[in-house]
Nucleic acid binder design. Structure first.
Length: 507
RNA sequence: GGGCCCAUGGCGCAAUGGUAGCGCAGCUGACUUUUAAUCAGUUGGUUGUAGGUUCGAAUCCUACUGGGCUCACCA
């Protein structure tokens, strides 16, 4: 659909024509910046503190956020990533032609400009650029939503007006970012969370790797995939649902510790904590078991919190949560018993457990495997209560095809998930490295699938071959980085930590 | 996919079946230290789309589209 300028846009187009008529380039190629807004102010304040303050000459660039024309004098605030700085613009300093661009309002809020001059302080005390040269860098044709700000004496910024329509903000994130400072901050912090995890793992000897996104056989998680097709090879491909099987092949290859941070794709429901593509962090480390993974997990999450927010004490949905290790560790059996009153070991088959669940009035799909029933009990009764960071370990074997059995316990495997703020953030195991056991698990899962559980886990022969060459014992870990960001940054929806969340087509 | 709620100028909102208004932004004018600048004047709407009820619909009904919350599946 071609652009249909609205009234405000038509006015700006008219200004664009007038600029052209006056020989002013609206989108010049040359630009020069000596200081960011924050640097310009800092440099002036440093100079000011000296006994004989030197002059501070700057060229700053940014987007105009406020214009106040007072006859032959004008003020502007321009904003770059570092913050805002005021321009002090007088007809005497700029000359009539340049000043006319401002006085005739050919330059608007939202335009990008460049200003050169000496730093000074206005009568009201605001550090400003006494602008001598004023250059339009980029004309804005569509006005952004207007939010006025006032700064109180204590430095708090009060905003008047808002741009708060969630749909428009998600669909036009660029506008959301341009207008809402706090949104910009959120994504800076999210980036720092990723950096922190990467740095933490690098520092303890992990190797960052990249594995295929397009996979002929998907696996590693119980999830429905997106399918695609390679035309030239005439090959059906799946977008990965996890990295697990490729990363563990690398341990066979001889690396002791590998991790990947990247996108997983799951063709399932969308909700406040599910997006069709999401960022996953997985690592696998040889010669440790899930106890070792627990330790890494606690330290990594605490490190990320500290690095991104400055503290391991976070505020999530009004609750204070301390992330400093050690975290509570509790078995699945104990946590389910604690919150539901059911000791599922008293009901060691699916039939018995389903009967007990129904007796207590819970709705549950008939014919679920034992482990799935336990998961339901857990997520209904226990999960929402796990606000403080909690490691829940020793999962039912029949829902965990890649984890080793707990020694002397046929029904449980060495697996844990960890919960913060009542939300699952990650999943980890002592990884299965017995190729024959693994093959049997694949076959069992296929059986379950045929029995009606619709999360297919296809048999990956190549993965089994890799394992037959010998895989070192290892601990593995997967975590949704988006969810970690939600918790650390106190955001209510995964869409608030995704720059471009998935949205339905507009028809 | 089910349930509930929402959709009105660029943005934020009003109008309880009877003339679609307000603030900000915009536009015109005044103003050489303002800062949510101020003062005077002023433009802009087929009320998400398509039907229906009614003398009359932003308002009531139906369907559709998009969004939010929630339940189910999942990380």
């Amino acid at each position: 659909m071609p652009w249909q300028p609205n009234k405000l846009e038509a006015e700006r187009l008219e200004k664009l024509r007038e600029l052209e008529a006056r020989g002013v380039a609206a989108y010049p190629a040359r630009v020069r910046r000596t200081h960011s807004a924050a640097q310009a102010i800092a440099a002036f304040e440093a100079a000011e503190a000296q006994p004989e303050p030197p002059t501070v000459e700057v060229t700053v660039c940014g987007r105009i956020r406020r214009v106040n024309i007072k006859g032959k004098l004008a003020f502007m605030h321009i904003e770059d990533e570092s913050g805002r700085v005021q321009l002090f613009l007088r007809i005497n300093d700029l000359g009539e032609d340049t000043y006319a661009l401002i006085a005739d309002k050919l330059v608007d809020t939202d335009d990008f400009v460049q200003a050169t001059g000496e730093m000074m302080r206005t009568r009201a005390g605001e550090v400003s650029v006494l602008t001598r040269e004023f250059v339009l860098l980029a004309k804005s044709l569509s006005p952004l939503p207007v939010i006025k700000q006032s700064v109180l004496d204590d430095g708090t910024v009060v905003e008047y007006g808002e741009f708060n329509d969630k749909e428009t903000r998600y669909r036009q994130r660029y506008a959301d970012l341009a207008v809402n400072r706090s949104v910009r901050d959120t994504f800076v912090k999210r980036s720092r969370i990723t950096t922190a995890c990467r740095r933490f793992l690098d520092d303890i000897g992990f190797l960052e790797v990249e594995t295929p996104v397009l996979q002929p056989i998907y696996g590693g998680a119980a999830a429905r995939p997106f399918t695609t097709h390679h035309n030239e090879l005439d090959q059906q491909l799946f977008l990965r649902v996890s990295f697990e099987l490729y990363l563990k092949r690398l341990l066979v290859g001889g690396y002791d510790g590998v991790y990947e941070i990247g996108r997983d794709f799951r063709n399932e429901g969308v909700s406040f904590k599910h997006n069709p593509e999401f960022t996953q962090l997985e690592f696998y480390k040889a010669y440790i078991d899930y106890r070792g993974v627990m330790e890494i997990t606690e330290r990594m999450v605490a490190y990320a919190a500290e690095y991104a927010t400055g503290s391991t004490l976070i505020d999530y949905h009004g609750q204070q949560i301390e992330l400093k290790p050690p975290w509570r560790r509790v078995t699945m059996r104990d946590i389910v018993k604690e919150h539901s009153g059911i000791d599922y070991m008293d009901y060691p088959t699916a039939e018995l457990l389903e009967g007990e669940i129904r007796r207590r009035g819970m709705q549950v799909k008939p014919g679920l495997p034992w482990g799935k029933l336990i998961e339901h009990l857990f997520s209904d009764y226990a999960e929402p209560k796990l606000i403080a960071p909690t490691i829940v370990h020793d999962y039912p074997r029949d829902i965990s095809p890649f984890a080793k059995r707990v020694v002397g316990d046929d029904l449980h495997v060495e697996r844990f998930e960890f919960y913060i703020g009542g939300m699952e953030l990650g999943n980890a195991f002592t990884e299965l490295n017995d190729p024959l056991d693994q093959e049997q698990r694949f076959l069992d899962m296929a059986q379950t699938f045929r029995a009606g559980d619709d999360d297919e886990t296809p048999l990956d022969e190549d993965y089994l071959r890799a394992m037959r060459y010998g895989m070192p014992p290892n601990g593995g870990f997967g975590m949704g980085l988006d969810r970690l960001a939600m918790v650390l940054l106190d955001q209510p929806s995964i869409r608030d930590v995704l720059l471009f969340p998935h949205m339905r087509d507009l028809k």
